[in-house]
Design a binder for these strands. Sequence first.
DNA 1: TTATATGCAAATGATTTGCGTAGTC
DNA 2: GACTACGCAAATCATTTGCATATAA
Lengths: 136, 136
Amino acid sequence: MTTRKIRMTQQRRFILEELRRIRSHPSADEIYEKVRRRLPRISLGTVYRNLNILTECGMIQRLETGSAQRLFDGDPRAHYHLRCVVCGRVEDAPVEPIIAIEDALRELSDYEIIGHRLEFIGVCPHCNKRDDVERG
Amino acid sequence: MTTRKIRMTQQRRFILEELRRIRSHPSADEIYEKVRRRLPRISLGTVYRNLNILTECGMIQRLETGSAQRLFDGDPRAHYHLRCVVCGRVEDAPVEPIIAIEDALRELSDYEIIGHRLEFIGVCPHCNKRDDVERG
DNA sequence: TTATATGCAAATGATTTGCGTAGTC
DNA sequence: GACTACGCAAATCATTTGCATATAA
């Protein structure tokens, strides 16, 4: 449990800034493209390293997706997500987290429960509209 | 939307059998190792192909994990999971799914909600015991 | 000053795919 | 017999890592 010293480099700051500015939940590659406009010599490896460090520090969150590619969330607070099955986009769900949801399980399981993740699955308005058109 | 004909090959049947027999949620590689005992010439590619086809058919489920590796679940019914943060093991959570959980969001979101996934995070009894020992 | 971080490129690891052959329906 | 699936090996894709150099504290 060595406490590591974190230096605030330009790369790290820009990555964090982009992540906080964007409402969506971008992939490492999307962040790389954004930051590259301001820091043309940054490498993709550096982006990955920083995303991992910032995740470990609890300054950002890493989202699991169905595919191999992960997404990142600049908001470190507990909140739920809403995923579009058609286009894969992930947004924050406009509901507050319900911590009480863990209580029932505490009595029924021999696990020590420390949290939960809830994700809603749906079709976003954009894809919904497009589906209508395609169906005629 | 071409309806594809699915043939029940030995490989496919054995994969399905293993997945249904096992209570845990194995990776493609673990399934490969199990099936290989009965079908020594099966290839890992075939295992992946079948796991994907069975997932598309809704006969099994594919689980997202924090890492790149996916896990598979022989139970196709809607149910929640319980993940150990220490060892990564995933079990079924001993609670019934609550469909009503989606209702609140239907009014608050412009997404067409079609489902949700809930995962509890905790420490399994096995890892909990080990932690105690290590802390002394 | 000195440990931490970077850029680059090569390595990794899980998963997918092309192709010729085998097996199911 | 026709068409799906298989085994094998090579390809792909996201992510990680080794190393020499640069930079924040």
